[in-house]
């Protein structure tokens, strides 16, 4: 009972945080390593929502929507999952050689309508849409899709886990996401519902702000094929996010926000 209350509170907190996410809070997964060797290594992954990267200072990332895809395309379970005050954490046993994808996905609807002069707020999901009375006016429903990812590789990188779902905003790496090095250019393609997402801004923010005075962020834009490129100025963890607003919500005519977020590591030469 207690824990289900806690999860409900977490869910509400995150939904409440969503509208302001673009302005301030950043959601992320942070793997303890992205390039590994050996036969049976583990990683531990932190998940949090914070202002500054990559610090635990605001809210844990709820792990309800976590999927881990192994190098052979199978899903594997997170181990030792835990949610604390400022962060969630889980471990992944990497007993297959190749690339793992970790993704936290979520979908929610929120909005409001007017009835008898009163404004009512509603929440829901695509599966359980908010109930709007027939006589309601000023109906405003917004749907939010989000996908937060990171990658890690044991041994030789492979592509199997990089497959996309065709739902919302996603990234197809053209440069392997665990083969990134300072000073080198990497290319990625953004897809919206499986189609190239052209002319979308991507924000690139390096981690470690506590030890710098400037954010050091970069803005890049996808081309007609949805492709964007980033040259990593130095080695480190980077946070990338892109967002698309359209009118393709699962309730016809409603606005939809699709957000894609990924944490990538560039290694020194």
């Amino acid at each position: 009972m207690k824990s289900s209350l806690k999860w409900a509170a977490l869910a509400l907190g995150i939904v409440a945080a969503l509208p302001t996410a673009a302005q301030a809070h950043r959601a992320w997964l942070l793997p303890s390593a992205t390039v590994l060797s050996g036969e049976d290594p583990w990683i531990t992954v932190d998940g949090a929502i914070s202002n500054n990267l990559f610090y635990f200072e605001h809210f844990p990332l709820q792990l309800n929507g976590l999927t881990i895809i192994a190098p052979d395309g199978e899903t594997v379970e997170a181990e030792n999952a835990h949610s604390g005050k400022y962060r969630s954490t889980f471990d992944v046993r990497l007993n297959k050689q190749g690339t793992y994808k970790m993704a936290v996905t979520g979908e929610s609807m929120m909005g409001s309508y007017k009835l008898n002069g009163e404004t009512k707020r509603v929440r829901g999901t695509a599966a359980e849409p908010p109930v709007i009375p027939a006589e309601a006016t000023d109906v405003q429903i917004r749907q939010a899709l989000r996908r937060i990812e990171t990658f890690t590789t044991v041994g030789s990188p492979n592509e199997t886990a990089l497959t996309t779902s065709g739902i919302g905003l996603e990234m197809v790496p053209l440069t392997h996401p665990n083969d990134l090095f300072a000073g080198e250019e990497a290319k990625f393609r953004l897809l919206l519902d499986g189609n190239p997402a052209a002319n979308v801004d991507v924000e690139v923010v390096p981690g470690g702000l506590r030890y710098r005075s400037q954010l050091g962020d970069m803005k890049v834009t996808t081309d007609a094929d949805g492709v964007f490129s980033v040259t990593w100025p130095e080695a480190g963890m980077y946070w990338l996010q892109a967002m698309v607003r359209d009118e393709n919500g699962s309730i016809p005519g409603t606005q939809r926000t699709s957000t894609y977020t990924v944490t990538l590591e560039a290694l020194p030469q």
Partner: peptide
Amino acid sequence: RNNEGTKWLKDLRQWWRRSGRD
């Protein structure tokens, strides 16, 4: 034991990238 010494081969970063990981 169990070939555990291979765990640190990735710290030879350039070699790991160019050859070791394969």
